[in-house]
């Protein structure tokens, strides 16, 4: 489809690796991958200028499935690695991919501080309300009565509301997406990337293996009835009172991203010696 001419626009295909996903056939993450590539193409980014950083989990496998620079780190620490990368290399577009276990449980502290620090990152969490990769244990977003081997009869714990927490912690852009709507999700990711500061996109992405009932999500989601607000309190109220199925940008702020001036100072290390010299 794409012509090899230099002037041809970058296609989504150009962001797809020849390395094929190991996700279960039917997994929502396939569509998220497609949304990533579409969002990058939409913004006409170059693969070498994008870094996709992740932790551990099914969802975190995504970097190698793109043709971008990828970083598949350790469980729960993707936001930290990504912040380090972005702060040291502000010229790159850094997108972070995570799961609900990776991002909200083991990585929960980094999530709070990433929102608060407001580094110009796009944080995409593929939320399937389960630990997929470890065979189906409850995550912070799992319903209290969901039965599993590790939580017979359910955890009885109330679910974590990542969007409200992101707002409270200072995220500058908050959106909810649905994997089954790859074009819409691509738009949201593209908008998240284009919005300076920490942008959080929570994607409902079904785990058809351990949560097959999530196939029904496609009948449950709907576009958010109202356009986003820049009033965090109002956004929080809306999110807390919706049923978790409203899709779209829910909050967009104007906080200045955190970025120390890297590369500005022009002194040599030896210039620093004067403070030791007697």
């Amino acid at each position: 489809m794409s012509s090899p001419a230099a002037a041809a626009p970058i296609t989504a295909q150009a962001f797809k690796s020849d390395y094929k996903p190991i996700w279960c056939p039917g997994c929502g993450d396939y569509s998220v991958l497609s949304s990533f590539t579409k969002a990058f193409a939409k913004l006409q980014l170059l693969p070498q200028d994008v870094a996709v950083v992740s932790g551990i989990g099914c969802s975190s496998r995504i970097p190698a499935y793109t043709t971008c620079y990828g970083f598949h780190g350790v469980h729960g620490r993707s936001l930290a690695a990504a912040a380090g990368l972005k702060l040291a290399r502000p010229d790159l577009t850094v997108v972070v991919a995570s799961g609900d276990g990776d991002g909200y449980s083991i990585g929960g502290n980094h999530f709070l501080h990433a929102c608060r620090r407001n580094v110009d990152l796009t944080y995409v969490v593929m939320d399937n309300h389960v630990y997929g990769m470890t065979k189906g244990q409850p995550s912070p977003t799992t319903e209290p009565d969901w039965d599993s081997k590790l939580s017979p009869g359910g955890t009885g714990l109330r679910t974590f509301n990542p969007l409200v927490i992101a707002l409270a912690a200072g995220a500058n852009f908050v959106a909810r997406a649905f994997a089954g709507d790859p074009n819409g999700t691509a738009d949201l990711i593209a908008e998240a990337i284009s919005t300076p500061g920490f942008s959080f996109v929570e994607i409902l992405s079904p785990c058809i293996t351990f949560r097959p009932e999530q196939r029904e999500w496609k009948q449950m989601v709907r576009p958010a009835a109202v356009t986003y607000t820049n009033d965090a309190a109002r956004a929080a109220r809306r999110i807390m009172t919706d049923d978790g199925m409203n899709i779209g940008v829910l909050y967009k702020g104007e906080r200045k991203p955190y970025q120390p001036p890297i590369g500005k100072g022009k002194k040599n290390p030896s210039d620093l010696e004067t403070e030791f010299a007697l």
Binding site: A12, P25, K38, K42, G180, N183, I208, K218
Partner: peptide
């Protein structure tokens, strides 16, 4: 451009559902 195509449903009328 494929990234700008929008359907009234979530996906194209001939596109198969991955789930």
């Amino acid at each position: 451009s494929s990234v700008n195509v929008r359907w009234e449903g979530m996906e194209g009328p001939e596109t198969a559902d991955p789930t």
